[in-house]
Simulated assay, not measured.
Amino acid sequence: MEYRTIGKTGMNISCLSFGASSLGGVFHEVDEKKGIKAVFTAIEHGINFIDVSPYYGYYKAETVLGKALKDIPRNAYFLSTKVGRYGQNGVNTWNYSGKRAKESVYESMQRLHVDFFDIINVHDIEFADLNQVVNETLPALVELKKEGVVKHVGITDLQLENLKWVVDHVPTGTVESILNFCHFCLNDDKLTDFLDYFESKGVGVINASPFAMGLLSMRGVPDWHPAPKELVEACKRAADFCNKKRYPIEKLAIQYAVSNPRVTTTLFSSANPDNVLRNIQYVEEPINTDLVNEVQKIIGNQMRVSWKNT
Rank of each mutant, 00 (worst) to 15 (best):
residue 270 S to M: 06
residue 192 T to S: 12
residue 216 L to D: 11
residue 242 C to G: 08
residue 247 Y to M: 10
residue 182 C to Q: 04
residue 207 N to G: 06
residue 278 R to P: 11
residue 275 N to Q: 07
residue 251 K to M: 11
residue 246 R to I: 13
residue 203 V to H: 02
residue 206 I to V: 13
residue 261 P to Q: 06
residue 198 F to P: 06
residue 207 N to W: 08
residue 223 D to C: 09
residue 261 P to A: 05
residue 234 A to N: 02
residue 190 K to R: 15
residue 187 N to Y: 09
residue 273 P to E: 13
residue 193 D to Y: 12
residue 246 R to Y: 14
residue 221 V to R: 11
residue 233 E to D: 14
residue 277 L to S: 09
residue 231 L to V: 13
residue 278 R to N: 13
residue 195 L to Y: 06
residue 270 S to D: 12
residue 249 I to F: 08
residue 189 D to E: 15
residue 223 D to T: 14
residue 214 G to I: 02
residue 178 I to R: 03
residue 263 V to K: 02
residue 218 M to P: 06
residue 263 V to L: 04
residue 179 L to A: 06
residue 191 L to D: 10
residue 281 Q to T: 12
residue 216 L to H: 11
residue 218 M to D: 15
residue 224 W to D: 01
residue 280 I to W: 03
residue 230 E to R: 06
residue 200 S to N: 05
residue 209 S to A: 14
residue 212 A to N: 09
residue 228 P to G: 08
residue 258 V to P: 05
residue 218 M to W: 07
residue 208 A to M: 06
residue 197 Y to W: 11
residue 210 P to T: 01
residue 244 K to L: 06
residue 247 Y to W: 08
residue 270 S to L: 05
residue 207 N to V: 08
residue 210 P to K: 00
residue 178 I to L: 08
residue 276 V to H: 05
residue 232 V to G: 11
residue 273 P to C: 08
residue 190 K to S: 15
residue 223 D to N: 15
residue 281 Q to P: 03
residue 179 L to H: 03
residue 270 S to I: 07
residue 182 C to N: 13
residue 262 R to E: 04
residue 228 P to D: 09
residue 223 D to L: 14
residue 267 L to Q: 02
residue 251 K to F: 06
residue 203 V to M: 02
residue 219 R to K: 15
residue 258 V to Y: 01
residue 190 K to Y: 15
residue 261 P to D: 14
residue 188 D to R: 06
residue 244 K to D: 05
residue 205 V to R: 03
residue 184 F to M: 00
residue 204 G to I: 01
residue 265 T to S: 10
residue 235 C to F: 04
residue 217 S to M: 03
residue 204 G to M: 00
residue 214 G to A: 10
residue 181 F to Y: 15
residue 276 V to C: 07
residue 252 L to V: 11
residue 178 I to A: 06
residue 182 C to P: 03
residue 225 H to D: 08
residue 256 Y to M: 00
residue 180 N to A: 15
residue 188 D to C: 12
residue 207 N to I: 09
residue 257 A to R: 00
residue 198 F to K: 10
residue 263 V to M: 03
residue 254 I to H: 07
residue 267 L to H: 00
residue 213 M to F: 12
residue 253 A to V: 12
residue 276 V to G: 08
residue 199 E to I: 02
residue 281 Q to Y: 04
residue 260 N to G: 03
residue 186 L to W: 14
residue 207 N to F: 08
residue 200 S to F: 03
residue 246 R to H: 15
residue 200 S to Y: 03
residue 245 K to M: 12
residue 280 I to D: 11
residue 270 S to Q: 08
residue 236 K to Q: 13
residue 249 I to L: 07
residue 272 N to Y: 02
residue 186 L to T: 12
residue 276 V to W: 04
residue 197 Y to K: 12
residue 269 S to V: 01
residue 267 L to D: 10
